[in-house]
Amino acid sequence: MANKKKVVVAGATGLVGNAALRHFGHAGGCDVVALSRRKPRALHGARHVQIDLTDAARCTQSASELQGATHLVYAALYEAPDLIGGWRDPKQIRTNDLMLRNLMAALEPAAPQLRHVALLQGTKAYGVHVRPLTVPAREGRSEMYEQPNFYWAQENFLRELQQGKAWHWSILRPVLIVGEAMGGAMDLIPPLGVYAAMLREQGSPLHYPAGAARVSQAVDVDLLARAIAWSGVSDAARNEAFNVTNGDVFTWENVWPAIADALQMKPGSAVPLSLAQQYPKWIAPWDELRRRHDLVSPGLEEFVGLSFQYADYSMRYGQTQPGPPSIVSTVKINQAGFTEMMDTEAMFRKWFTHARTSRLLP
Rank of each mutant, 00 (worst) to 15 (best):
M341C: 10
P190D: 00
V215F: 05
V233E: 15
Q61L: 15
I327E: 10
L176R: 01
R226G: 07
R131G: 13
L206V: 03
T353P: 13
Y310K: 06
P148Y: 04
L133M: 14
H44G: 09
R226N: 08
A212N: 07
S297N: 04
R131C: 15
G45V: 03
A153V: 10
N156H: 14
L223C: 10
R47D: 09
V219R: 03
D343F: 06
G127N: 06
H48W: 14
L172N: 08
A196L: 05
A311W: 00
T13G: 05
S326L: 14
K39Q: 15
V175A: 10
Q335I: 04
G45C: 05
F338M: 07
G164T: 03
P148Q: 04
L100G: 12
L72I: 11
M342P: 00
T330I: 15
A181R: 02
Q335F: 02
T70W: 06
L192W: 00
P132K: 00
A185F: 00
Y126C: 14
A106I: 01
Q147H: 15
R359M: 13
T357W: 02
E240G: 07
E143M: 09
T13D: 07
V194L: 07
P209Q: 01
H116L: 08
P205A: 11
R173M: 08
G29P: 09
Y279S: 00
P285G: 06
I171A: 14
H293I: 08
W252G: 11
A196Q: 05
H71I: 13
R88F: 11
R173I: 06
N102C: 10
E201D: 11
A76H: 04
G28Q: 01
G17W: 02
A181V: 08
P90W: 06
G11T: 03
N149R: 08
G299P: 12
D343I: 04
E139L: 10
A105N: 11
L295E: 07
L176S: 06
H23N: 09
E146R: 11
D235R: 06
A258W: 01
G211E: 12
P132G: 01
E201T: 04
L206K: 03
H23E: 14
L289F: 02
P109D: 00
L66H: 04
S64C: 09
L300A: 06
L223F: 03
H44C: 11
V130Q: 15
K165A: 14
A258L: 07
L306I: 05
V219H: 08
A166R: 09
K350D: 07
Q50A: 15
S274C: 10
A185C: 10
I84G: 08
L273S: 10
D222I: 00
D235V: 09
W169K: 13
T245K: 05
G11P: 12
G193L: 00
P267D: 05
T70G: 14
V9S: 07
E155L: 15
D343S: 13
Y126S: 14
P298D: 04
